[in-house]
Nucleic acid binder design. Structure first.
Lengths: 231, 231
DNA sequence: TTTTTGAAAGGACATATGTCCTAAGTAGTT
DNA sequence: AACTACTTAGGACATATGTCCTTTCAAAAA
């Protein structure tokens, strides 16, 4: 990750309405970093000294076992805080983070933030609200993962990226760019995702043509999803 | 849950060193509730108006699917906050809560707490630290559950409640009072827990005698747990 | 002591999902 | 066009875990 000294945090602070959180006098203390697709941004166990704010791009958060194999993860887009828990608990990094696309982060040092907290309550409040949202989302996703099989989760996911208007189904941007990533997103293996996709195709719920997935029967899909909404 | 007007929050505030969090002038606004084993304390979807602080007893936090069946849960002992996320996000209750033993909660209304936040930053900080800890623990447990089979988790659990001294193994208090509860704690079915226990007994790692579990081979257990520590 | 009840234990079977491999398709590069 | 690399697709098999039942057992109640 490379610091861009010429860049100004200002633009991003405006864009994401962070001006109440970071007062004028604090902004010169903030840095702007740029990262490239594929960069390993943080590794579990590392010592952190700054909080990072994802303001552009997409990242992947995952856990590696000591045995090196399995992983669990989420994809994150702006606005997302990295290192908030580490800042509050003064822990080492818990999850590893990798860049899925090019992107930009703002950063502020733990020390500066601790000072900021002394005379600027909105920042503490911001942290609190961020964490509450994270906790809620995390719990929601975990429950979904543990309570329902991949088929249901996939159905929910497809519903979440589709919207219907005048009988036509529009696909919003997929959170994932290919099936492997989709498998990771759903927390399953690529092989299994394929199996489930095949079943849905056989049941005439979706149709697969050259790598893309088209919804054929929205109603059946809704029934499958059991009213769950992903994210 | 029954309010005990005669009771005083003071004792508990002392015991858990909450005096910096709740200043003198705020304490008269706090209530003391008593609950009985088996009471359903909160149900998912309910509207909350107070934050609750578990100061005595054991509770169970779980999720029910609309289909009524499966559940996921954790057991909690003091000191634990209930309703913190709900307070910050103004959501309805996310998980249901049930009393496992008799116990006591302190409570303070959202409205009073919002006022407190205005002129008493330590409370916001307390919320933040609590949430960070919760988030961390939650993530840790989730990872453990998703990455390792029940056998490993059970091994970790047994290790976590055992301590060795001069060649003798001491069992600390189990978090659970019977095998069904242990199965819930581990997030598996009772049947499966039994299967795994049997395997461990066959492998001479543990020994089962009239309902209790004794560790026979600590080393094998440690290898099985792969260095993971539960909670 | 007999009866009842709930916990403990496990057999039989089904299902979700993972791992390992192979093959076919597609796009980019030489 | 030939080659390479990556994605898609799926066969074969193993494993973790769930569901449903039955039996055993021990403690509590009659």
């Amino acid at each position: 990750m490379k610091e861009i000294k010429s860049a100004d945090a200002e633009v991003y602070i405006k864009r994401y309405e962070l001006d109440k959180v970071f007062p004028e006098h604090f902004r010169p203390l903030m840095k702007v970093y740029q990262f490239k697709k594929g960069n390993v941004l943080f590794s579990a166990g590392e010592e952190l000294e700054e909080i990072y704010i994802l303001v552009d791009g997409k990242i992947k958060i995952f856990t590696l076992t000591p045995e090196g194999k399995s992983l669990i993860n989420r994809f994150k887009r702006p606005l997302e805080l990295i290192g908030d828990v580490e800042y509050v608990k003064r822990n080492t990094v818990f999850n590893s983070v990798e860049a899925v696309t090019d992107g930009v982060m703002l950063a502020a040092s733990f020390a500066d933030l601790a000072n900021l907290e002394q005379d600027h309550p909105p920042f503490t409040r911001f942290l609190l609200e961020t964490l509450a949202r994270k906790f809620y989302t995390e719990a929601h996703t975990t429950n979904l993962n543990m309570l329902y099989p991949v088929e249901v989760r996939l159905a929910s996911y497809l519903l979440s990226i589709s919207s219907v208007s005048e009988g036509t189904i529009f696909h919003q941007e997929m959170h994932t760019s290919n099936l492997m990533e989709l498998a990771e997103w759903l927390g399953t293996s690529y092989r299994h995702l394929n199996r489930v996709l095949k079943k849905m195709a056989t049941d005439n719920i979706i149709e697969r043509a050259n790598g893309s997935i088209a919804i054929k029967d929205l109603e059946k899909l809704s029934i499958l999803a059991k009213g769950n909404i992903y994210e």
